[in-house]
């Protein structure tokens, strides 16, 4: 469960109060500058609120730095160039995601066990990425990189998943497939999910509730 109490961030979010239950899928909508991305940054720990508190499963994470909060919060960024590392292979990117929230030890990161898991997950995309584990991510198309970053976000047991306009860089068919994968996974893994979108179809078809942000305040959560 995610609780935000009287959150204020740089005059972008103002006295924001929010409660999102476990296994709930909330779509976040609002005009440009409404505070959607700032809300995500505050939840992920990228920005520290000036006041207020953030609780995840009743644990106060307000002062917890982003790298520690990564154990419970996974992000998919709008730009796939931020969501993946171009100079690393697909396998290495997935290794990075696999270790989210775990102690990074001095043991070799590649293993057959991990490869098997990665291939299984990548197969669900239907893009053939499971056969390209040694390829550099920088050689992939924007859509492929975004699809990879979504798999990266689902590979660990994070409690909260933040999706920032994830289908903006994808074609219609891929967008539908990705949305389906996300929908299935968040319910299977019982994640709390927030997704920023401007897509009317997604607003109509996806999510349990819709959060409307206006001028940094939660105008409606229905």
């Amino acid at each position: 469960m995610l609780k935000m109490r009287n959150i204020n961030v740089r005059n972008v979010l103002m006295d924001l109060n929010l409660t999102i239950n476990r296994n709930e899928f909330v779509l976040v909508v609002g005009d440009n500058g409404a505070g959607k991305t700032t809300l995500f940054n505050a939840i992920s720990g990228n920005i520290k609120p000036e006041s207020g508190s953030i609780l995840i499963d009743d644990c106060d994470v307000t002062d917890m730095p982003q790298y520690e909060r990564a154990a419970v919060v996974a992000n998919v960024f709008q730009d796939p160039k931020i969501g993946t590392i171009a100079g690393m292979t697909i396998r290495e990117n997935l290794n990075m995601a696999y270790m989210r929230g775990k102690k990074r030890a001095l043991s070799i990161s590649n293993s057959d066990e991990r490869d098997k898991l990665y291939r299984e997950k990548l197969q669900t995309l239907g893009m053939g990425l499971e056969n390209r584990l040694n390829d550099y991510t920088g050689d992939l198309s924007g859509g492929q990189r975004q699809a990879l970053s979504i798999i990266m976000s689902l590979i660990t047991d994070s409690k909260i998943l933040l999706l920032d306009e994830i289908t903006a860089a994808l074609d219609g068919q891929t967008s539908d497939r990705i949305t389906k994968i996300i929908n299935e996974n968040i319910h299977q893994q019982k994640k709390t999910c927030l997704m920023i979108t401007h897509n009317r179809t997604q607003i109509d078809k996806l999510g349990d509730r819709v959060l409307v942000l206006k001028n940094g305040r939660a105008q409606r959560l229905s």
Binding site: Y67, N75, G87, M88, M99, R100
Partner: peptide, 11 residues
């Protein structure tokens, strides 16, 4: 290569 992702990945 990507400090934003590194931090979001727990580094």
């Amino acid at each position: 290569q990507n400090r934003q992702l590194a931090s979001a990945s727990g580094v």
